[in-house]
């Protein structure tokens, strides 16, 4: 079966695109899929450090596109997962060194040999974003439960619809259940109400994300982390499995939790 090509994008910067791509790649590859991830953020390369592969880079995506190396030479194999590869972004070039048709050509060469191609998009709605969605079969829009992130996500979802790249699926990242409970953060239902798209995952705010990015080993490797669990669930949904959404409302005292279990709250 040819690969599913999935792009993660957001509109607003810093909401968790790179984190999501790294974790979905790890989760899919841990589950036996052959995965290539492509860093589409030319000039602001990051996926390599999040995956802990920064020391192994020789060639990058622009080298492939401009014919300085073969595709295989630019593909870096993960340290732990033999079926996971990274094609790094160029650090010293700008996004105009790549065009949407370059991306289509590159991805076409990967389609037959892998199960998933994951593309990390830069923030914004300009050239880099256009490149990142050009070859996508499916686009995941990621947002945080905050006004500016949701507004930008809506704009991107609208563009994707207009370009026949929709319907997008939504990841809500950095949800803080305690704040939602105090009515000081938009809930997942609020965000879904506003954006009116399909939900594919809710990832809680989790300090393990930062700890694991320090180490260069995405949190999806960590069986105890809630964010890791959420990313593993999204990976299973991408494979077509029906997985219930995590019950993130484990905040509160043991007593409150027992009452909730007993259906009294």
């Amino acid at each position: 079966m040819p690969a599913q090509v999935i792009t993660v994008t957001s509109g607003k910067g810093g909401v968790g695109k790179t984190t999501a791509v790294a974790n979905l790649a790890v989760a899919l590859a841990s589950n036996g899929s052959k995965v290539v991830c492509i860093d589409g953020d030319i000039g602001l390369r990051n996926l390599d450090v999040i995956l802990g592969l920064e020391n192994r880079i020789v060639y990058d995506i622009v080298d492939v596109i401009e014919g300085r190396c073969r595709l295989k030479q630019a593909m870096i194999r993960d340290k732990k997962l033999p079926e996971l590869y990274l094609i790094p972004a160029a650090q010293t070039r700008d996004k105009n060194s790549v065009s949407p048709s370059d991306m289509n050509r590159l991805v076409k060469d990967l389609r037959n040999d892998y199960d998933f191609v994951l593309i990390d998009s830069p923030a914004g709605i300009e050239r880099g974003f256009r490149n990142a969605i050009a070859a996508a079969d499916r686009v995941l829009v990621i947002t945080n439960p905050e006004v500016s992130a949701v507004r930008d996500a809506d704009r991107v979802i609208g563009i994707l619809e207009a370009e026949d790249k929709g319907p997008a699926a939504l990841i809500i990242n950095r949800l803080n259940p305690a704040l939602v409970k105090k009515s000081d953060m938009l809930s997942a239902d609020d965000v879904l109400d506003l954006l009116a798209v399909e939900l594919i995952g809710i990832v809680p705010e989790d300090e393990n994300v930062i700890i694991s990015s320090n180490r260069g080993a995405p949190v999806a490797h960590d069986p105890k982390s809630k964010a890791g669990q959420a990313f593993r669930n999204i990976a299973r949904r991408l494979k077509g499995e029906k997985v219930p959404f995590l019950d993130l409302d484990s905040s509160g005292s043991l007593w409150e939790r027992l009452q909730r279990l007993a259906g009294r709250k």
């Binding site: 905050e146 006004v147 949701v150 507004r151 809506d154 609208g158 009515s183 938009l186 809930s187």
Partner: peptide, 18 residues
């Protein structure tokens, strides 16, 4: 609540954006 204001404000902004 601040979440309610966020939702109401977003509802209006999104109508204008769209």
């Amino acid at each position: 609540s601040s979440a309610d204001s966020a939702k109401e404000r977003l509802q209006l902004v999104l109508i204008h954006d769209r």
